[in-house]
Design a protein around this nucleic acid. Structure first.
Length: 623
RNA sequence: GGGGGCGUGGUGUAGCGGUUAGCAUAUCGGCCUGUCAAGCCGGAGGUCGCGGGUUCAAAUCCCGUCGCUCCCGCCA
């Protein structure tokens, strides 16, 4: 070994030891005849002190010792140290010394000691890095630069800590399921394309011209087949691929904790995952869990109170519904929206009544991407009268003149607003009103500083609808996936009232991020067939695409269900990262490129020919 | 597919119609024995993403394009 100790382990109790360390030069502080090197390896940083004085010099020249030579090479080490630059890889031998009193560094684990170098050897020189790797300055650097030099970015303490945290989390998860008798099984990466769900990444077959494999969006079918195979408890840390547009929390390839269990009901899977998440949180985080056991919301409750199926419960500000109150309002925006089948909901902005017109306009702009045409707003600038009601004098609002006293009173009551608060309202179809207010709620939480970032607010969302109508394709589609079972009592209305069928599905949410979702599956082939038909697949299509599943269900399929959790999202939440890229070693950009490898890239014509592929130019050059 | 933001020495930024394109940091050289964002002195480094246009004059205004990013659609 080129080192006897790591750069993170030496303490005052090691004083006097002769050690050899190897690592990267984090920083150099050159005082001429005295040079300090901060030597970094993955375990930490140790200060190396290099001078031409082999005894190690007391501070401030209080006791200048003679430059006696005792056979080591301090002068050589000093000369080498003056050559050394940031990120050089060096090997140092020397003696561990307690630092002189007053010169300890409390910032460093090893800050009580320093290594007085007797030998210093450059193992590898380094070009000047494109950005500063020590400290946190690199956080400000353009992400494109960081991605191109990802191997340098990963030397930075924050990124390195994120990957270590990810390792700790995955190790914890594996051990948790090993201990509970789960079998870890690897499933294929080369699978079969199916039309349901996300767009597939596709791999051409050389041996079978014109045919393609698909990369797994998740190992869904394989894990169900493993249940039919009798394994009863399966899990896998599985790589998944989805060819869809990306976001801060979505990458084209990502990792799931995928698991499946036989002879269970939803409550069994939920209890197990809840236990896992509770102990995982205790293991890797100092933050307390806000509510135990995890609150369970139905989908309808979540949409009603938060406008979204993944509510951030770290703060209140529930939405309120005033559709009935304003159904016959003189205010046309409300009345017309309701008449058109829409809803009118709102949210309270605590102490928002005095926001500037610009701030309010910003909120209106904020809501527009979600389709809302605007925000109606009422500021409670003054006090309520003796009767508890607000008069026009004590309100600030462009719409007040359109509202009756009853409507104003009703709005104030429904919102729970008090003096100084601002009421914000959206009137539109539910598919616009809810997302607009849900995101507005987050924005208000942020602006009004209502979010306690030191909390872990887990919750379950259950009773999802099984199906949703796809107006573009004019058919019903599975919200979760086509193997999800309806609740037993709802099978009878699958054909007649598909919108009302609830699924045996459950999502687990942490601080407003959906970190996992699962369901109890259909395990009987006749019900699965009914489901496929409900989704509008012809018998031929079912046979071609899912025939193997239906056939498998005919050979003794146990009742089963499971869940999948997004590892990157979990790690990002525990790491306080804004993007899952921050917890991946080599992530791709928002357009799916790899700036380090420069992928995707063209391939040789020969290679294409072998795969029976012809590339069609997107914009043919006109000759 | 759509919308917003950003793009100026290596990095982070100021400048937003006429500047010698400023600052910080990194970098290079010199001095320096107690620093830990070391300090002090000095130097080098920019065709302002790219292309086109407007103008006497463009980093600055306009159009296009490329890249990064956030969001909508999409993501069972």
């Amino acid at each position: 070994m080129l080192k006897t100790h790591t750069c993170g382990e030496l303490r005052a109790s090691d004083a006097g030891k002769e050690v050899t360390l190897s690592g990267w030069v984090n920083r150099r502080r050159d005082h001429g005849g005295l040079i300090f090197l901060d030597l970094r390896d993955r375990s930490g940083i140790t200060q190396i002190t290099v001078s031409d004085d082999p005894e190690g010099n007391p501070p401030n020249g209080a006791n200048p010792s003679s430059a006696s030579s005792n056979g080591n090479n301090c002068a050589g080490a000093l000369a080498t140290a003056s050559q050394v630059r940031s990120e050089f890889v060096v090997q140092v031998s020397g003696s561990v010394q307690k630092r002189p009193q007053g010169f300890e560094n409390a910032e460093l684990e090893t800050g009580e000691i320093e290594v007085i170098a007797s030998e210093l050897q450059i193992l590898s020189e380094a070009r000047t890095p494109p950005f500063v790797l020590s400290g946190n300055q690199g956080d400000e650097v353009d992400e494109a630069v960081r991605l191109k030099y990802r191997y340098l970015d990963l030397r930075r303490p924050r990124l390195a800590a994120n990957l270590r945290l990810r390792h700790d989390i995955v190790r914890f998860i594996r051990n948790f399921f090993y201990d509970r008798d789960f079998l870890e099984v690897e499933t294929p990466i080369l699978l079969k394309s199916t039309p349901e769900g996300a767009r597939d990444f596709v791999v051409p077959s050389r041996i079978h011209p014109g045919r393609f494999y698909a990369l797994p969006q998740s190992p869904q079918q394989m894990k169900q087949l493993l249940m039919i195979a009798g394994f009863e408890r399966y899990f896998q840390i599985a790589r998944c691929f989805r060819d869809e547009d990306l976001r801060a929390d979505r990458q084209p390839e990502f990792t799931q904790l995928d698991l499946e269990m036989s002879f269970v009901e939803a409550a069994d899977v939920m209890a197990l995952i809840e236990e896992m998440l509770i102990s995982l949180s205790a293991e890797v985080s100092d933050k307390p869990i806000q509510n135990l056991p995890f609150p369970v919301l139905t989908y309808d409750e979540a949409m009603d109170k938060y406008g979204i199926d993944r509510p951030d419960l770290r703060f209140g500000l529930q939405l309120f519904d005033v559709t009935e109150l304003v159904r016959n309002s003189r205010f046309g925006v409300f009345k017309n929206a309701v008449a058109a089948g829409g809803i009118v909901k709102g949210i309270r902005y605590p102490q928002g009544a005095q926001l500037s017109r610009k701030d309010i306009d910003d909120l209106i702009e904020y809501v527009k991407p979600y389709g809302a045409k605007g925000l109606a707003w009422i500021g409670l600038t003054g006090d309520a009268g003796d009767n508890g009601q607000y008069s026009t004098d004590n309100l600030r609002s462009p719409i007040i003149k359109f509202l009756s006293e009853e409507e104003i009173a009703g709005l104030v009551t429904a919102s729970g607003a008090e003096k100084g608060d601002l009421i914000l309202l959206v009137a539109d179809e539910p598919g616009v009103t809810n997302p607009a207010l849900a995101n507005l709620r987050l924005e208000i939480g942020d602006r009004a500083n209502l979010v306690d970032s030191n909390l872990l607010a887990f919750c379950w969302v259950v009773d999802f609808p099984l199906l949703e109508y796809d107006s573009q394709e004019d058919r019903w589609g599975a919200i979760h996936h086509p193997f999800t079972s309806a609740r037993d009592e709802d099978w009878s209305i699958l054909e007649e009232r598909p919108a009302d069928v609830r699924a045996k599905a459950y999502d687990v949410v942490l601080n407003g991020w959906e970190i996992g979702g699962g369901s109890i599956r259909i395990h009987r082939s006749n019900l699965q067939m009914r489901m496929f038909q409900r989704l509008g697949l012809s018998e031929k299509e079912v046979d071609e695409q899912f025939g193997h599943m239906l056939e498998a269900f005919q050979y003794g399929a146990p009742p089963h269900g499971g869940i999948a959790m997004g590892i990157e999202r979990v790690v990002a939440l525990f790491a306080d990262a804004q993007s899952i890229r921050e917890v991946m070693a080599f992530p791709k950009t928002a357009t799916g490129t790899d700036l380090l490898l420069e992928a995707p890239s063209p391939v040789d014509d020969d290679q294409l020919a072998e795969l029976h592929i012809a590339v069609r130019e997107r914009n043919p050059v006109k000759s």
